[in-house]
Design a protein around this nucleic acid. Structure first.
Lengths: 359, 359
DNA sequence: TTCTCTACTGTGAACGCTCACAGATCCCGC
DNA sequence: GCGGGATCTGTGAGCGTTCACAGTAGAGAA
């Protein structure tokens, strides 16, 4: 860059550099400069920088004053070199499909994690590894200790990246319940199954009896769990879990519409529809309108997520709120715990029914 | 870890602090281990790692073989400590409002930048600084050299962060044309004005004469430029630029609907509507439908962005495509150029008219 | 007094890499 | 034969921090 050769000056100028600043930019102050300014040793400055234990109040004050005066900023590379910790975390997306990136839930999660980590002064590296080649490079990068931990977002089953990261010994926290994993994997998930139960109970409580469902992809935990909750409630109500009442979606609006069309074709008599995501529910609403059915008059519709889509829909969607802010906060907490040496653990957070106009 | 038995450790470790290695985790191989394995010096390994200039083919082969054998991975902290470069870049969002994060364009941009940088093996740090406090901390962090450059996304005028970063000497590339900045600022933008011109010309070409517009926020370059393009074309067509044909939106669906309602109230005779974003255009379509007007029969509607919303709408939106993939690629290119010592520069990329059903 | 314990401070030695420099070797033209 | 450039290689000397350790001083106990 511009001024790479300024170390020539630091040689002698270091001793009396008070006056010696020429035209160029000054060398960044180091812990040494702070120590000299404060009249203490490097060690003491370092101790202040790392929590201030075993430092006298007078020394700490002098160091802090010197830091302000010199404009000192810690060099994280030097620290990382010796501690072996990077002071950063990765947000890892192992999705071949781009669609996931456009999922509004993903945004909220990413934002939440970024800010939760920022509160600890830990920057978040965003990494996307769709292809196998990218995944290999990434596992290598992460295993090399360039980040202290990984927040993993991967909806599909048996993600090999998760396994490889865990066995390489790096702290990992996954979003959503892991499927088909042998190793123990820390994770944070919303209680999908209970959310589904709440919604289907609500639909039954409004007097509906032919409740259909549009599921999420059945290779994702959300898809499986929400369907399971649906089945449980039908069973406990003594209603038949008829396969003609179940159609698979893909979390997209178009997929929701298609699945709804399929359901209506097979079961024109259905009077309620539990759709496993708000976006799909939007598609369902469009399809129901096309078929001339009123919502909620003819068919009650329940969504899932409580995303922006729920409020944008007409009628506004009755849905299940996922506590994304708490999910991201818990993911970060679990990750930092793990970095600090704690054992892996899991957190399941409750979901809430939000009643609006569609059911 | 892998089962590479780097027994070579006995070599040196025997002399200094050998005894301590029980069954615990093995020390990561360093450049030193590679050098020993390859039968060359550290310097030669380092040269191979950094492009391989002034290295004999035989030595290079030996080094590469040794790297594979030992499973060596470069320690970036050690490199950064001496080079003063971090090998990472930041994606910086200085938005107080969360809405921006839900903008589909943002997703595409973030994704594109992440991948363009990944091709150079440069991880992207995501940083969000809404509050002043966060911005201060962030400028400090970045100025301390923890990242080599910043991709700045900030739609509003006179962002103080941009100024401070530029004056601190760190490479910055902004997305969108900077407004109200005194310092020169590298940036990449779509040709908003020309996009607006194309759309309005298209609307006129279909015979419309009372063309209204819903603008973006007028403290954003997109808002200003698209309105300017609209005005230019009306002027060149000899049509009056009536203020009753102009209403301000906020890039949200609801805002688009509200602005459209306002326009319809003042100018019930309008026969075309240029809406400065697809999301707002969706709101406009809803409002037009509510007022009983057919699209495009009664009112032709043109959007902007060519986002997923354009295809989801009914009728599908005629819109202006922003080349987001090229924008992110150019932002990364400009940033790396600047890191490499090039002067700041700007790139304006062309936009394309995409004709669908709404106009 | 003397000994020990605690609170605090300073000092070398790393951490793993790059960089400048000094040698070494080869090839070319004279 | 020689000088001189290009190519290749090895060797200290750091980069800025933390860590282990040695040391000092003061308080309390013996």
């Amino acid at each position: 860059m511009s001024v790479t050769s300024n170390n020539a000056a630091s040689d002698k100028a270091a001793s009396d550099k008070a006056a010696g600043k020429g035209p160029g930019r000054r060398r960044r102050p180091t812990i040494h400069d702070v120590a000299r300014e404060a009249g203490v040793s490097r060690g003491t400055v370092s101790r202040v920088l790392n929590g201030g234990h075993y430092v006298s109040p007078a020394a700490a004050d002098a160091v802090n004053a010197a830091i302000r005066k010199t404009g000192y900023v810690l060099n994280r590379h030097a620290r990382s070199l010796i501690t072996g910790r990077s002071g950063s975390a990765a947000f890892l997306l192992t999705e071949p499909q781009e669609k996931f990136f456009e999922d509004p839930n993903f945004n909220v999660l990413l934002r939440g994690c970024t800010q939760a980590l920022a509160a600890h002064d830990i920057p978040l590296l965003l990494m996307i590894a769709g292809s196998h080649e990218e995944q290999r490079r990434l596992v290598r990068y992460v295993s090399a200790g360039h980040v202290d931990g990984v927040l993993l977002v991967s909806s599909h089953t048996g993600d090999p990246v998760a396994e490889r990261l865990v066995t390489s010994g790096i702290p990992v926290v996954m979003c959503g319940k892991p499927m088909g994993h042998t190793t123990r994997l820390a994770h944070v998930a919303a209680d999908d199954r209970d959310g589904a139960r709440q919604m289907v109970r609500h639909l039954l409580a409004t007097g509906r009896r032919r409740v259909a469902t549009v599921t999420g992809p059945l290779d994702t935990p959300g898809g499986v769990e929400r369907l399971a909750g649906y089945r449980e409630v039908l069973a406990e109500a003594g209603l038949p879990a008829d396969e003609t009442l179940i159609a698979a979606g893909d979390y997209s609006r178009a997929g929701g519409a298609a699945a709804t069309a399929e359901l209506l074709a097979g079961r024109p008599d259905l009077d309620a529809l539990f759709v496993a995501s708000d976006l799909m529910a939007q598609g369902a609403l469009a399809e129901l309108a096309r078929s001339g059915r009123g919502v909620p008059a003819d068919v009650a519709v329940g969504g899932f997520d409580d995303s922006a889509a729920a409020l944008d829909s007409r009628p506004q969607l009755t849905t299940i709120r996922q506590p994304w802010d708490r999910i991201s906060a818990e993911m970060v907490r679990l990750l930092l715990d793990q970095v600090g040496g704690a054992d892996t653990s899991a957190v399941i957070l409750p979901t809430d029914l939000v009643v609006r106009d569609s059911a």
